[in-house]
Amino acid sequence: MSTGDDIKMTEEEAFSYLQDNLHMASAKQRRQANRESFLNEIVVAIHRHLPWHTVKNLNTPQEKRHLPTLEEIKEDMYDGTGGLCYTLNVFCRMLLQALGFEVVYVPSDVRGYKDVHTLLMVRHLTAEGSSHMVDVGSSSPLFRAISFDFEGETSPVYQDSFLRYRFVRQGDSVVQEHATSSDPHAAAEFDGTTSEWFTYLTIHYKRYVGIEFFNDTTRAFYTVVNPDVPFLTSLRCLAFPDNRFICIKDTTLLKENEDGRVEKSYFRSRDEILSAFQLYFPQFPRSMILIAMNDENVSFDFNKQTGG
């Protein structure tokens, strides 16, 4: 099925990428043994090695900011720098298509913004007509392909890293809900809810679209400074090395402990932020972080108190 973009990776390139960049050994044998398990391993490896971040956005001068091309996306993923949801999921589709999976784009709504989050549906994975959602770009730990063929209105509850989540049918869409107790930072940022579950995404999983569908809805996140979204106003970088959450968010460090709880601490200087990037995200040169920190729309509060 064509979705308006060409596959930009060969099968040979894809297997080399799995081995050299995602550190997956014996990938060909694993694909042959069990395609679903193989897909889940790829999803986990991307979460581990390709961070979600705003660093490159903030490094790009205003007059040169643009929606990344497929070639630029591929280059960033080979550099190990990752990107925003659009770049991560576009590359994931590129990789999975090269490995023989049938993958289509579907749109989803986030925080009242319609059709802005790029998602993937893997078709015919476990049976003819089956549908599995893959999302490696939402900054949430979805360490598996999620079957949308669940019975009834509500899916099983999943637990990955710190996060408990589930999916609920809503007309022709499926709502991704997070347990508020497991994701309080997102709950506060998204809708301030105090209920047990809150809506994270509304997924239009039956609407297969081409990559060009996202040109207008997504371009603004790369080009327009909006105080309501963090992509050009906040220095953020996160990943899941060893399947545990680590996140630099301006002057805040969020780190998942061995018990699966996310602990918060604060940086007290710009040098501490630079040191944290060197420790947790060494793929970013110091010069990139300095430029991002100096962006006129980014500010740092070094007086935050623990527990605040």
Rank of each mutant, 00 (worst) to 15 (best):
residue 288 M to W: 08
residue 191 D to A: 13
residue 292 A to N: 03
residue 248 I to L: 15
residue 196 E to G: 02
residue 294 N to T: 07
residue 289 I to A: 09
residue 211 I to G: 05
residue 238 L to R: 02
residue 191 D to S: 15
residue 303 N to V: 04
residue 195 S to F: 03
residue 257 N to V: 05
residue 274 L to V: 11
residue 284 F to I: 05
residue 203 I to C: 15
residue 281 F to V: 03
residue 285 P to Y: 13
residue 295 D to H: 15
residue 269 S to V: 09
residue 251 T to Q: 09
residue 279 L to K: 14
residue 219 R to C: 05
residue 266 Y to S: 11
residue 249 K to I: 02
residue 209 V to C: 07
residue 251 T to C: 13
residue 302 F to D: 09
residue 229 V to E: 10
residue 193 T to W: 02
residue 217 T to Q: 13
residue 270 R to S: 14
residue 290 L to N: 11
residue 260 G to R: 02
residue 254 L to R: 15
residue 272 E to N: 08
residue 243 N to V: 00
residue 189 E to R: 13
residue 278 Q to C: 03
residue 213 F to C: 07
residue 278 Q to R: 14
residue 286 R to G: 01
residue 280 Y to K: 07
residue 291 I to M: 05
residue 241 P to M: 06
residue 271 D to P: 01
residue 247 C to V: 02
residue 190 F to L: 08
residue 235 L to I: 09
residue 288 M to K: 10
residue 266 Y to C: 12
residue 211 I to N: 09
residue 261 R to P: 00
residue 209 V to W: 07
residue 199 T to V: 12
residue 289 I to E: 08
residue 281 F to D: 04
residue 279 L to I: 03
residue 189 E to K: 12
residue 258 E to M: 11
residue 287 S to F: 03
residue 282 P to G: 08
residue 289 I to G: 06
residue 202 T to W: 00
residue 285 P to C: 11
residue 246 I to V: 15
residue 188 A to T: 11
residue 205 Y to G: 09
residue 195 S to V: 03
residue 301 D to I: 07
residue 194 T to E: 12
residue 229 V to A: 06
residue 208 Y to C: 09
residue 253 L to G: 07
residue 282 P to E: 10
residue 286 R to K: 14
residue 199 T to F: 00
residue 255 K to D: 11
residue 225 V to A: 13
residue 232 L to T: 01
residue 282 P to R: 11
residue 203 I to Y: 04
residue 257 N to M: 07
residue 295 D to L: 02
residue 275 S to R: 12
residue 272 E to W: 06
residue 299 S to Q: 13
residue 260 G to V: 01
residue 273 I to D: 06
residue 192 G to C: 06
residue 222 Y to H: 15
residue 268 R to G: 12
residue 289 I to T: 06
residue 192 G to N: 09
residue 264 K to C: 13
residue 267 F to H: 04
residue 269 S to M: 12
residue 277 F to K: 03
residue 223 T to E: 14
residue 285 P to I: 11
residue 204 H to T: 03
residue 246 I to C: 04
residue 220 A to H: 05
residue 277 F to E: 05
residue 206 K to I: 00
residue 258 E to F: 05
residue 280 Y to H: 15
residue 303 N to P: 00
residue 226 N to C: 06
residue 286 R to P: 00
residue 272 E to Y: 07
residue 190 F to A: 06
residue 267 F to Q: 04
residue 252 T to A: 13
residue 279 L to G: 01
residue 284 F to S: 06
residue 207 R to I: 01
residue 204 H to Q: 12
residue 218 T to G: 03
residue 251 T to R: 07
residue 302 F to I: 11
residue 234 S to L: 05
